[in-house]
Design a protein around this nucleic acid. Structure first.
Length: 683
RNA sequence: GCGAAAGUGGCGGAAUUGGUAGACGCGCUGGAUUUAGGUUCCAGUGGGGGAACCCGUGGGAGUUCGAGUCUCCCCUUUCGCACCA
């Protein structure tokens, strides 16, 4: 499935269907799948093992993306675990010791990054597939058994790692690729040596003059003619071993019989259920030692006593399709039923970035597997993906009595600020002692900077905590926790409550008659319907709930200044209040349900429709045109929408400040951005 | 080492298609109310300057009438991968 997993997720691939996924995740999956197109070919040899058989049938296979440089091969390197390495080490204690050293080498990131490229000659040689020359085989600590065939061709002139290796061990460096305007220097590596784009073959006989792609094709054709190789696509993605020696996983329904081997549990005996009394003691496979799990188990074929499979499945197996059970919760007969056809693929999946290449790869793979088993109709499990950010908070510390750092919870700290308001440190609430301000970090037990939302829910209510969480940052960014930010959210809710109730206290309103409104009332409605349009777009398309809330706050600020107690003025207020309550309902539902009823509505708020922007109401009566001179703002003027360049310029020239800036210079050009700005270019 | 993203006031963040940088909120300053604290309300709040104005989106170049936004180089931070032939 590697190819299909790549095609559907790859950015820019015509077959891609996951365009609603973040680019970051798509790229991570692409790199993880690691598709690499090249040539797999063999170096023939006559090396025999102890029994006299040819090792690998006399062929040492390698994989390369640079077949065009095949005439520059001056050595080969194999992984320490390679059969040829093992063979050579049998009579070579120094080599055996080197191989052991490679195996014990560190595998941490830091160790790998600094680890030196090391090797040792095996004394063996293989034959170059095209020239027939002998090529020495080395063991290299940088060659991975798990990728390709565990062996590589060494072309030091055109691979940076091979170059370093050849320098270190005095191996021959043979230039076989040239680039226009560059000269090759045996002493120092230059980036162009390995650049496919600029490469043209030289010193390569029949291939001379060919650019990269043509040379690869020609080399592959020659190798194929000799029966030694062909073009091949290699993937970094490997098989998924689903079994685990764990108690807590889905049992694998297999019975092991001494005579018949691994036999599937008959369907009528499914499901195999985990024993409830198994207590893992940390040693060995817990189910293997649990006799009750095997009691009475017989081979389905011969009926003789047998034992169950004791490995369980990786929990990633379960998380790869659990969500489809929600589509048909009452169905007890099938793995998935008709509901999955209706609901899948899911429109929006939300999860942390930490799942980018584990769960999110497994569940895509498993979905394709289920599709090919006829269980689901779709190709992919989720159309859109949102990776939410983490919650972070400031850290506070002080030195403890024994010299170690004590981390103080932010809830116990009184902040100290300088006159600008910058936080400089803090004091412990309990005893007033100074604490040191640290970095803003992911909430954790070790840094003691976690905040319990329950305490805030008790104090301010769930709506306040919800509002702050949505307002503090866009959902895909990390959210910095701030107690004063929570208080700000609480203040807004109180202001909203006062705003709506002040309106309600003035009594019932009449039906809005938009034809009879004055300019101020029209302007208030324009602000309202602009806000509805923005909030609708933010919530449904952009998922920027923080800016949606900001737009509603702004609208509330305008509405509290709209002091119109006329019948139609109050009708406008009623329209605005009802729209605000509906827009805020998903975020602060408890408050909104109350306000909705108080505004005189008798149906439930959750069944009310989302407000729609009235485009006619959004037309501006007057607008402010910014006047720039050479791109700098020098004035503004009140204008009617659709004002043309000439009349805008004419009016702009009346402005005193504009006149001053035009003294002694001539106008070269005038640019009008309709209804926004006028730029006068002078020189 | 490779790949990706980001860098905007004191802070979280806004600026959606190259068109008024700093929306909204926090914090801070001043004022009103209050016995006081808290709450609430009003005004101010990027920097410099008396003002006109100048400077300002990590640094440096460039494209453009116009750049936070586009291009190139550099710096820093964060994330991902790990010798991938």
């Amino acid at each position: 499935y590697a190819e299909e997993l790549l095609d559907h997720v790859q950015i820019g691939n015509p077959k891609a269907t996951l365009n609603g996924w973040p680019d970051k995740v798509r790229l991570m999956q692409e790199n993880w799948i690691g598709k690499s197109e090249g040539v797999r070919f063999a170096f023939p040899h006559t090396i025999q093992d102890a029994s006299g058989a040819l090792i690998g049938d006399g062929k040492m296979y390698v994989f390369t993306t640079r077949a065009d440089t095949i005439m520059g091969v001056t050595f080969c390197a194999v992984a320490p675990e390679h059969a040829l390495a093992t063979h050579a080490a049998a009579n070579n204690p120094a080599l055996a010791a080197f191989i052991e050293e490679c195996k014990t080498g560190g595998t941490t990131e830091a160790e790998l990054a600094t680890q030196e490229k090391k090797g040792m000659a095996t004394g063996l040689s293989v034959m170059h597939p095209l020239t027939g020359e002998a090529v020495a085989v080395w063991v290299g600590n940088y060659v991975l058994m798990s990728y390709g065939d565990g062996a590589v061709m060494g072309v030091p002139a055109h691979d940076e790692r091979d170059f370093a290796f050849a320098k270190k061990y005095n191996l021959k460096i043979q230039q076989v690729v040239a680039a226009e305007g560059e000269s090759f220097d045996l002493q120092t590596w230059a980036d162009w040596y390995g650049d496919k784009q600029r490469a043209v073959c030289v010193n390569s006989g029949a291939f001379d003059g060919l650019p990269y792609k043509a040379a690869v094709d020609a080399v592959a054709a020659q190798l194929a003619a000799k029966g030694l190789g062909e073009k091949k696509t290699t993937f970094r993605l490997r098989d998924w071993g689903v079994s685990r020696q764990r108690y807590w996983g889905t049992p694998i329904p297999i019975i092991h019989c001494a005579e018949h081997g691994a036999v599937p549990v008959p369907e009528q005996d499914l499901p195999v259920v985990l024993p409830q009394d198994c207590i893992p003691d940390g040693s060995g496979n817990p189910l293997h030692k649990h006799e009750g799990f095997h009691a009475g188990v017989v081979c389905p074929v011969c009926g003789q006593p047998a034992r169950r499979e004791t490995d369980t499945m990786d929990t990633f197996v379960d998380s790869s399709w659990y969500f489809m059970r929600y589509c048909d919760p009452a169905n007890t007969e099938k793995m998935v039923a008709d509901g999955a056809d209706y609901w899948m693929p899911m429109d929006q999946y939300i999860g942390g970035i930490e799942h980018a290449i584990l769960h999110l790869m497994y569940f895509r793979f498993y979905h394709k597997l289920m599709r090919d088993a006829g269980l689901v109709q779709s190709d992919e499990p989720a159309t859109n993906l949102l990776c939410q950010g983490m919650v972070v908070a400031e850290t506070f510390s002080r030195s403890g009595t024994d010299g170690q750092t004590d981390w103080i919870n932010p809830a116990d700290v009184e902040l100290e600020r300088d006159e600008r308001g910058k936080i400089t440190g803090g004091k412990l609430r309990a005893d007033g002692s100074a604490v040191q301000l640290g970095a803003v970090e992911k909430m954790s037990k070790s840094k003691n900077n976690g905040v319990d939302p329950q305490g805030l829910v008790d104090r301010y209510g769930a709506d306040t905590v919800r509002l702050f969480s949505m307002f503090a940052a866009p959902p895909d960014q990390s959210l910095e926790w701030s107690d004063s930010g929570v208080e700000g959210a609480f203040r807004f809710i109180k202001r909203l409550w006062t705003l709506v109730n002040t309106h309600i206290d003035q009594g019932p309103t009449v039906v809005l008659d938009i034809t009879s409104l004055n300019d101020e009332q029209k302007e208030m409605r324009r602000l309202l319907h602009d806000a509805i349009a923005k909030v609708s777009d933010d919530v449904s398309r952009r998922y920027t709930f923080n800016t949606a809330i900001a737009a509603i706050m702004e609208l509330c600020n305008h509405l509290s200044r709209f002091d119109d107690h006329s019948e139609q003025g109050r009708a406008v207020q009623q329209e605005a209040c009802l729209a605000i309550v509906r827009m805020l309902n998903p975020i602060i539902p408890h408050v909104c349900e109350n306000l909705w009823a108080a505004l005189g509505e008798t149906t439930a708020l959750y069944s009310a429709s989302w407000p729609e922007a009235d485009e006619a109401a959004r037309k501006k009566l007057q607008l402010e045109l910014v006047i720039q001179i050479n791109g700098k703002v020098r004035g503004r003027l009140e204008a009617s929408p659709g004002i043309d360049k000439d009349s805008a310029l004419e009016q702009a020239l009346q402005i005193e400040n504009i006149q001053r800036h035009l003294e002694g210079v001539s106008i070269r050009k005038v640019i009008l951005v309709p209804d926004r700005l006028l730029n006068i270019v002078v020189g």
